[in-house]
Nucleic acid binder design. Structure first.
Lengths: 353, 353
DNA sequence: CTTGATCATGATATCGATATCAGATATTGT
DNA sequence: ACAATATCTGATATCGATATCATGATCAAG
């Protein structure tokens, strides 16, 4: 058993103890940690050694009091609490917020009317910025109400950010294109497509990416094989039935999100269609369900947790910028990298009889 | 447009401004907020009014520096990152941690060997307490390593907490019993059961709850209708096939968790079995998938987010207690309330032909 | 070798809240 | 009405870190 902490109950090591141990002032330690200001190599090394020796970890709470990130309040306004991405957004967001010592207020809302009251509740609470996850990220009225109050807004995972709002997102077009290329390279020529909820911006953009992918492979668009969905499992079920219940069914189906892909897969299972030997299926988003179901889904991974983090960091930056300059600058747009997750639900196109 | 903040860029209202506005000292304001110490009614009212007038929200970062919650480091050691409950645990945990100004270290590990190194990394980092989500919550070696170092451990969502560890959990037995009663009340007499991974403690306890439920309804246990699963979707698929591919298939299936229930449902869809008219299915945990799939799953809701919060709060309490008394006291055990989510996947037993 | 500029370091004030203790006020008993 | 408590309230120190400014060290150029 190794001895930890000699005699104190108080456990945590402070910057001052590190400073004493290294024979420098606490400011030097602070500078070493924060890397912004140069510190002579000799001292830096000594400090780093002391930090290791004492297992020093900075106290973020204390840090944020002085550094001005503290006292910032960020609202997150969401409308679809069950959506699985919300958890992950929150996860990244809260982690980042706790790192920055920033406070986060959650506000839930439903219809347009309740959006109004939710927004005014946030304004009352004095939030300095608001993050809008989908589908609210595309709600012009909400954005307007907020910007009219002079509150910076950040849209998360929208496909087409409204003017004036900052955004953290992936390129839905490129994602859909990559996925479509993946299918065409596997030799698929009859590819079904399930659209998402028409009121969400990614719906159209993903469809456009799909079209581009067909075009690149010199494949015609088969109108019959494009069906409307709503981003829900149930709509995937129905769309799947429509697509698979026909003589000349597609050899691959591109569902605009994972939930619908899971629905299609359930239908396929039900019809005894083997995946991926007889049918390839792919989704979009890489939500938990994608790796839960069997076979695991080929899909486009959105780095949601990282996006949540980035969202907080970005809006904090905007807020500080606004405080300094006294006016709202240009919105910041950030495009994150997506990843094509090539898993087990897609394979070479079956030979035609 | 209403004016927020007269002229300052600095936005956030401090306790001192409230104090000035109310004509009292900041300590009085602090006391009103924290309610621990009585404040004369007259002042309290004035203070509360000022708080409202100024939209004051306490700065948690600042609070935690002085109050001693700060500087506490809590490790969360997890081994199964994809599990959907993990997100939610983290969600609750991080929220609470940020409220308390407590720092959280995440450590991931796989097999037993990597558990050792993960634990020592946490110890090196000087964590004051460790939270173990499932399935690590039942790992005796991990718990031993930690307690030997004098570090309090809290097991989250275990069915049978090891001695010496604190725990936040629901009563898996009662949950399974409630679910079974629900099925028997609906008239089901042939009920299939899918067990979970034998190495997880809830597996057995839920099974026992099921047995008790049968017993209460004077139903015999039908051995053929109990099949082994592994808590995964895929194992649910296989178990579902076994249970439904027989002449005298059950009229209801109790899967030990939601993922397996989803698998069963996929099989049922595939066989053209209508749910819930011809077959009732229920799961356990109320993970996101339960409300994603169609029809939505009847299941037992574990208040995971709240449990994550409570876990942080509880272990912080333990840590402070240990710091004060200088020794590890008795473990704290907390039983949360579960909720039976009666949704669409269960219905009255079909008439026998 | 000195001067002036540049760079690194440290002393001190500060962030926003709470702990602590002393002083002020109200309450009680006689 | 007065002393003795019991209750409130406020002044000040403090938490752990960083911002700021002043000072000491270092270096290039003359």
């Amino acid at each position: 058993m190794k001895q930890r902490r000699e005699s104190d109950n108080t456990s945590s090591v402070t910057i001052h103890e590190v400073a004493k141990h290294a024979g420098v002032s606490s400011m030097t330690v602070s500078r070493v940690i924060n890397k912004n200001v140069p510190v002579r190599e000799k001292l830096r090394t000594k400090v780093l050694e002391s930090i290791k020796a004492l297992n020093y970890i900075p106290n973020i709470a204390a840090r944020s009091t002085r550094s001005g990130d503290s006292g910032i309040r960020i609202g997150i306004l969401y409308s679809h609490p069950s959506a699985s991405y919300l958890n992950e957004i929150m996860l990244g967001g809260l982690e980042q917020a706790s790192k920055l010592g920033t406070q986060v207020l959650l506000e839930k809302c439903g219809g347009l009317q309740s959006q109004k009251t939710a927004v005014s509740r946030l304004v009352e609470a004095g939030v300095d910025g608001v993050i809008l996850p989908p589908p609210l990220c595309d709600s012009a009225p909400t954005v307007q109400m907020l910007t009219r109050e002079g509150i910076p807004v950040l849209a998360l995972a929208t496909a087409r950010p409204l003017p004036m709002v900052s955004a953290v997102r992936i390129d839905d077009f490129e994602g859909a294109l990559a996925l479509t290329r993946h299918l065409t390279k596997l030799g698929h020529k009859r590819i079904g497509f399930i659209k998402g909820d028409p009121s969400h911006t990614p719906t159209e953009v993903r469809y456009e990416g799909f079209l581009q992918g067909l075009d690149e492979a010199d494949l015609p668009l088969l109108d019959d094989l494009v069906v409307q969905g709503m981003f829900t499992y149930k709509s995937g079920l129905e769309a799947g039935r429509k697509l698979l219940d026909r003589e000349d069914r597609p050899t691959a189906i591109f569902a605009s999100n994972d939930d619908m892909a899971a629905g299609v897969m359930a239908v396929a299972h039900g019809m005894g269609i083997h995946i991926p030997e007889q049918l390839s299926i792919c989704g979009f988003d890489d939500t938990p369900v994608a790796s839960t179901i069997w076979p695991q889904l080929t899909t486009v991974h959105q780095p949601i947790v990282a996006m949540g983090k980035s969202a907080i960091a970005t809006i904090v930056e905007k807020i500080k910028e606004a405080r300094t300059s006294g006016q709202m600058g240009k919105p910041k747009r950030q495009l994150m990298k997506f990843t094509l997750m090539d898993r087990e639900s897609t394979g070479p196109a079956p030979h035609r009889d």
